[in-house]
């Protein structure tokens, strides 16, 4: 009897606290409805500035994610498999820096590398590293990199090394083993990393503002519309962003479920 009461008390506490957390997250979405003007919404969403910003964000985030998959996946494999080398801890810290650094600070650091007086710019004087699509991609890639690397590293670490050893014994080279065993077995975790880094790139504002305020990404467009006309002016931008987020969240949960299924059948 006493146990039952204690259990009930526990359940009620959890439910109440969870309810507060959920309300805190959902309430801003509800207030959005107050500002929606249904007749103006299609016009607002179809504005060229907004559609261009959306297309630019989708393009730049996709390119950033592709760059991350090309360089981030090998780095995450390196971190997962090469365990005993001096300076490994420092390497792990470096990988996390873009995650813990305020995005504006990341942008400032990137400006140091790609700004007007940097050696790289002097080496490639015709390339526009800032205030360009390239600048956006550089900023998004930098800020989104930890999501890709950490998720892929965890995915590779979850693949038992015995699978790779078996492949080697069965006559496969290291490259063949990587592409036929390690990568497919870590695939779902890597895809989750790609989705997370893509989402982070889409939502990136601080570092992107420092590197390239123009052309506008969707985040900068929301920032600007809100600054000019308040929330009412930014509602179409936000609704577009919410729809995009919901699609990504949906894909993310499907992938995560697949990954859990894949992990369950490993010995």
């Amino acid at each position: 009897m006493i146990m039952n009461k204690r259990l009930q008390g526990f359940n009620i506490t959890i439910i109440v606290l969870s309810g507060i957390a959920l309300a805190y997250i959902a309430y801003p979405l509800v207030t959005l409805l107050v500002f929606v003007e249904p007749t103006m919404l299609p016009h607002g969403i179809l504005r060229p500035q907004l559609t261009n910003a959306l297309i630019l964000s989708l393009f730049s985030a996709t390119i950033s994610t592709l760059i991350l998959s090309l360089f981030g996946v090998p780095l995450s494999y390196f971190l997962a498999r090469f365990k005993n080398f001096p300076g490994k801890f420092i390497l792990r810290v470096i990988v996390i820096v873009p995650l813990v650094l305020p995005p504006l600070a990341s942008g400032a650091l990137l400006l140091g590398v790609f700004g007007p007086y940097s050696p790289i710019v002097k080496a490639f004087p015709t390339v526009e590293f800032t205030q360009s699509v390239l600048g956006i991609i550089i900023a998004q890639t930098y800020v989104a990199s930890p999501f890709m690397i950490l998720a892929s590293q965890a995915a590779f670490e979850s693949v038992d090394e015995s699978y790779e050893n078996i492949a080697r014994v069965l006559g496969k080279t290291r490259f063949e083993t990587f592409f036929k065993v390690s990568l497919p077995m870590a695939k779902t975790g890597i895809v989750i990393g790609l989705i997370l880094s893509w989402v982070r790139a889409i939502g990136e504002l601080g570092a992107t503002m420092m590197m390239a305020y123009n052309p506008h990404t969707i985040s900068i467009q929301i920032f600007e519309d809100n600054a000019i006309g308040g929330l009412r002016n930014a509602v179409p931008d936000i609704i577009l962003a919410i729809v995009l987020s919901l699609i990504v969240v949906f894909v993310f949960y499907i992938m995560r479920r697949q990954r859990q299924d894949a992990l369950r059948i490993q010995w």
Partner: peptide, 16 residues
């Protein structure tokens, strides 16, 4: 990969 040795581990390690 060039030794032509077959080796089974404690667990079968079949590729899932």
């Amino acid at each position: 990969e060039r030794r032509k040795i077959a080796y089974t581990f404690q667990n079968p390690s079949l590729f899932p």
